[in-house]
Amino acid sequence: MKTTYFVIAVRPIRDNEDEADFIINDETLVIDAVEKCDLENLTIGEEKIRKTFPKHKIMVTHLPLLELFSLLSNISEIEVELIQEGLVAHVDSAPSRLGMAFDWEQKHNATIQKGSC
Rank of each mutant, 00 (worst) to 15 (best):
M1P: 10
M1F: 05
K2F: 09
T4M: 11
Y5W: 14
V7F: 09
I8L: 12
V10A: 10
V10K: 03
V10M: 06
V10S: 09
V10I: 14
R11P: 01
R11V: 15
R11F: 05
I13W: 03
I13T: 09
I13F: 05
R14S: 13
D15N: 10
D15M: 13
D15Q: 13
N16G: 07
D18P: 00
D18L: 15
E19V: 13
E19W: 11
D21Y: 09
D21V: 12
F22D: 12
N25Y: 02
D26T: 08
D26C: 05
E27W: 00
E27P: 00
E27H: 04
L29Q: 10
V30E: 05
I31E: 01
I31Q: 02
D32N: 07
D32M: 08
A33R: 08
V34P: 04
V34S: 04
E35R: 15
K36R: 14
C37N: 07
C37V: 15
C37D: 05
L39M: 06
N41K: 15
T43D: 14
T43I: 09
I44D: 06
G45C: 11
G45V: 04
K48R: 15
I49A: 06
I49K: 13
R50Q: 09
T52V: 12
T52C: 02
T52D: 05
F53A: 02
K55N: 14
K57A: 14
K57M: 13
I58K: 12
M59N: 06
V60T: 15
T61M: 10
H62Y: 05
L63N: 05
P64A: 03
L66G: 08
E67W: 03
L68N: 11
L68P: 00
S70T: 14
L71M: 08
L72D: 01
S73H: 06
N74M: 12
I75A: 01
I75D: 00
S76C: 12
I78H: 04
E79Q: 12
E79I: 12
V80Y: 02
V80P: 03
E81T: 07
I83F: 02
I83H: 04
Q84G: 02
E85K: 15
A89N: 02
H90G: 01
V91P: 02
V91K: 08
S93M: 06
S93Q: 10
S93H: 11
P95K: 06
L98T: 07
G99V: 00
W104F: 09
W104Q: 13
W104N: 04
W104V: 05
W104L: 03
E105F: 09
E105V: 14
E105D: 13
Q106D: 04
Q106V: 07
Q106S: 13
T111Q: 06
T111A: 11
T111P: 00
I112E: 04
Q113M: 10
K114Q: 15
G115V: 11
S116W: 10
